[in-house]
């Protein structure tokens, strides 16, 4: 069997275990519908049901978050990274807020920005931007010294060394930051949709279905959220492969 198809084994195993759990009733059938019901809920929800709308809202919020985070954090990361002393002087603050659960910032952002979409998007941006900032700065700081020297030796002025070498050198690490950032942004957006006055979004749908005891719909929303997270990651991986072809070589 081709190695490409190996992941199917895990998926099939997972579904089989689930089915088994339903058949032998390890869990109350009300809490654990069978996989076919869950799949049907995904299908009906995404084709004409309300799940599609929720999905699109979550995509929209997460996209705004990551775009804002990237616009803020990439230039700032380059700036901080290009002077190691500058980075060291703000490193503690960055690490501190990077370690602070972004969800703890919700009340603060709520006070400032109200209960609208801004709060959800900005908290997610805040979390993601610190992750991106940290990675971009390290990418810039860890640019190969030999390569920078080589450019200087060939007569490249300082600014050209930055644009021709340092920026490109930092790209692989920048993509690590973007991938981690988008995962974090999605987590924060989903949590925000659950608890901060939301009327839509996957997070809202999960908690809504749970309260109404619509278990297949709840599982459907969870799986769609999972697929979304996976798709975001995959998207950045594909972009990276395409534009940062030298990464890891």
């Amino acid at each position: 069997m081709n190695d490409r198809y190996l992941p199917i084994i895990g998926v099939a195993g997972f579904i089989a275990l689930w089915y088994l759990a339903v058949v032998v009733e390890i869990v109350d059938p009300v809490l654990l519908p069978d996989p076919v019901d869950a799949a049907r809920a995904v299908w009906t929800g995404m084709t004409g049901g309300s799940l599609l709308g929720d999905f699109l809202r979550t995509v929209e919020r997460t996209t705004y978050s990551i775009v804002i985070a990237a616009i803020v954090a990439i230039p700032l990361g380059i700036l901080l990274g290009s002077s190691e002393r500058l980075y060291r002087s703000v490193e503690f603050v960055i690490d501190f807020f990077r370690s602070t659960p972004a969800s703890a910032m919700f009340p603060l952002f709520l006070v400032i920005f109200g209960v609208g979409d801004e709060t959800k998007i900005l908290v997610a941006s805040f979390g993601a931007s610190l992750v991106i900032l940290f990675n971009v700065s390290y990418g810039v700081m860890n640019a190969r010294k030999t390569r920078i020297l080589a450019a200087k030796v060939m007569g490249a002025p300082r600014l050209r060394v930055l644009t021709d070498v340092v920026l490109l050198e930092s790209l692989p690490q920048t993509f690590v930051g973007l991938r981690n950032g988008v995962s974090l942004a999605l987590v924060i957006v989903i949590v925000a949709e659950m608890f901060i006055g939301s009327v839509d979004g996957l997070g809202h749908q999960v908690i809504d279905a749970q309260m109404l005891f619509e278990m297949p719909e709840m599982y459907a929303a969870i799986f769609v959220a999972g697929a979304l997270g996976y798709a975001f990651n995959l998207m950045f991986l594909i972009i990276e492969k395409r534009f940062v072809h030298w990464s890891g070589r």
Partner: peptide, 16 residues
């Protein structure tokens, strides 16, 4: 005008 060849070509060339 001078040329310089580094020992570590892997790190001296531009992979992009």
């Amino acid at each position: 005008r001078f040329g310089y060849v580094f020992q570590n070509y892997r790190e001296a060339l531009f992979p992009w």
